[in-house]
Amino acid sequence: MKEVAMMETVETIDVDYMELDDIIEKEFGLNKENLIMILQTIQRRYNYLPKPALAYLATKIGVPMSQIYGVATFYSTFSLEPRGRNIISICLGTACHVRGGARVNEKLEELLTITDGQTTEDKRFTLESVRCIGCCSLGPVLKINEDMHGRISSDEVKKVLDQYE
């Protein structure tokens, strides 16, 4: 179970309903069974799941909003809040853990003054912990957007973060 965000606190953004229609209808054929993959596509587009898009999706595929909210909060991939420009995934899988991943995580939290799941005020970084990205030989591993940084020690964290705007 993950901590859930209250939908009311989330800012509104412009949702392109025509585009949303294409995703729901053309790509996923209005199929309820594709709900998770539709949500993934929406999140890829907006970087999070905007409430208006979910409300529209609910009417479109005939799944109650409560159920969509249930799915969106059950799976750790989804975020109901806007995320930062750069997504940091710190691996806390077992192999990274025994090689000191927690220390790297502490350093990140200290430098960014945010904790797991939070976004910095300037929207530069969102910090997310993941459990194993399958690069155990390079542990501890830090993934920023699509870049993998392997064999990271806590004193190298700042240097890595500086590469991202």
Partner: peptide, 21 residues
Amino acid sequence: GAGAFVCGESTALMSSLEGKV
């Protein structure tokens, strides 16, 4: 999947495949 360890369990996986929790 969407990042849920429990979905490796067969019945949970099938439920997830149906678009549910």
